[in-house]
Simulated scan of single mutants.
Amino acid sequence: MRAHYLQHVSFEGLGSIESWLVNAGYEISNTPLYSSAVFPDIESIDFLVVMGGPMSVNDEAEYPWLAQEKDFIKQAIDLGIPVLGICLGAQLIADTMGGKVFPNTVKEIGWFPITAVNSEASSTFQFPKEIDVFHWHGETFSLPEGAVQIAKSQGCENQAFQLGRNVIGLQFHLETTPVSAQALVTNCRDELVGGEYIQSEAEILAAVKESYTSINSLMTRVLEYLHEAR
């Protein structure tokens, strides 16, 4: 089995996803879009992960490879390949499938709770009723046709959605580790300007080990759910 991930910046890697993929028996490859927009044969992939990044899905003039990336994601979805989108990745899925991506009323950066939506719908992934997760986003999206909302927060209505059995988009970062949180702070600390849903660098990095264990365990559940959709 082969898992492929689309990486938009060097400092946003797979985080906890990598160890799960290795343990599940996947070979891992990636397209580092910040240096090369070379995509593999879509039929050689068994699992696609679309990572986050500071750019917008609407920035095709500045990042021409976005058009190619959207086409690649659409091919994967059409073929029934399990697809997981994280932050920008979720927005790319929404845009690709007909939704709109636009600035949220507030930025969400730091550790804030999400709540489950449609928790009684057995046909969708089941989030905990409420859980604190790690956020770093300023845009949001409308749900594409056929998508089901599965999580929300006070600061952003559409936090997670599912499309069919094999596609999940997450605005938040369940893959975050202490190392990847530090990398985001180091590279994007200019965004830590204060706000109702923006924590300080100290607050972000003060998260205890159990916070990371909690979100990484939930990411494992998401990955297992999508793996079973193959």
Rank of each mutant, 00 (worst) to 15 (best):
C156N: 12
F11N: 07
D132P: 01
V101R: 08
P40N: 05
P82A: 12
Y34T: 03
G15E: 02
E224L: 10
L79G: 01
S214V: 03
E175H: 03
F141A: 09
S142C: 10
P103V: 01
I131Y: 01
E139W: 06
L21H: 01
V57M: 08
H137P: 01
D132E: 15
V185P: 00
A202R: 13
N158H: 13
E12V: 03
D95E: 12
W111P: 10
S56R: 10
I198N: 10
P64R: 10
R230P: 00
L143D: 12
F125K: 03
G13I: 06
L184G: 06
V49R: 04
L92R: 02
V167G: 03
M97F: 02
S35A: 14
V193L: 07
F11Y: 14
V38I: 13
I150P: 09
I204K: 09
S29F: 05
I93T: 04
E108M: 10
G13K: 02
L33M: 11
W65P: 06
I109V: 14
C156S: 13
D95P: 00
V117I: 14
F172W: 06
Y63F: 13
W20S: 03
E69G: 10
L6S: 01
A67S: 15
H135E: 09
V193F: 02
Y5M: 09
N58H: 05
Q182R: 15
A76P: 06
Y26T: 10
M55A: 08
H4M: 08
L192S: 05
S214P: 00
A37W: 01
A116K: 05
T140W: 03
T115Q: 13
G146A: 11
Y225W: 15
H173T: 13
S200M: 03
T96R: 12
Q149F: 01
T115N: 11
S44V: 11
P128Y: 08
C188K: 00
V101K: 11
P40A: 09
A207R: 15
E60N: 11
T31I: 07
F125C: 10
Q149N: 14
K152V: 00
S119V: 01
L143S: 12
T115P: 01
N118G: 02
V179P: 00
M219C: 15
A3L: 13
L218N: 04
I73P: 05
R230Y: 07
V38R: 04
I198Q: 12
G169F: 08
W136P: 11
D46K: 06
L48T: 04
G89V: 08
F125M: 08
M51V: 03
H173S: 09
S153A: 14
I131E: 03
A116T: 06
V185F: 01
N58K: 11
P82I: 09
P32K: 14
Y63S: 05
Q159M: 14
R221K: 15
K129F: 02
F102P: 06
L66R: 12
E62F: 09
I109Y: 04
T105A: 12
Y34D: 11
K74F: 02
E139H: 05
A116G: 04
G25R: 06
G146V: 08
L48P: 04
